[in-house]
């Protein structure tokens, strides 16, 4: 039997299984994501004001805010707290920059048992690698387009 005909044969079963899919609680999950995500952004805003008082401005201000948030994200990951927040908050803790930090730090910590070179360092971007790859590619594309437009 080829793959395709097997798919047809089993479609009834898959459809039947899908009738048991537990209802997703949109209101609850999105509400939590809203609260936690908003709270993390407020921490960012708070840091912004504090650093502004300390005399930082412009790019350095924005950079320092994200560095501090990334530090907090990696620290909470190391302490084993961030995944617990993530389990309840969902996207609320995935989407902020702390979630990016978590996705870099968690494989780094996880795979250190396989050594610092082929474990920690090689697998550090296991989860977050795509963000860098697509981000840098998209950024270069935007830069190229703007450069061509400016010619």
């Amino acid at each position: 039997m080829t793959g395709r005909s097997r798919e047809n044969y089993n479609r009834n079963y898959i459809e039947y299984v899908n009738t048991f899919a537990p209802p997703t609680k949109h209101f609850k999950t999105c509400g939590r994501a809203f609260l936690v995500g908003g709270f993390i952004c407020c921490i960012g805003q708070f840091l912004r004001y504090m650093l502004e008082l300390a005399g930082l401005s412009g790019d350095m201000l924005a950079g320092t805010v994200s560095v501090i948030l990334i530090f907090l994200g990696t620290l909470l990951t190391g302490l084993g707290v961030y995944d617990r927040i993530g389990r309840n908050a969902g996207a609320g803790s995935i989407v902020p920059i702390t979630g990016f930090a978590n996705s870099v730090a968690s494989p780094a910590i996880e795979f250190k048992t396989e050594g610092y070179v082929y474990g920690t360092a090689a697998k550090m971007f296991n989860v977050a690698g795509p963000i860098i790859v697509f981000g840098v590619s998209a950024g270069a594309a935007v830069g190229l387009v703007y450069w061509l437009l400016g010619l």
Partner: peptide, 17 residues
Amino acid sequence: ERQYRYPLELGTTRPPQ
């Protein structure tokens, strides 16, 4: 978990199934 899914400390949600 570390072999089949994600690193233990990654903050993901667990689907209800």
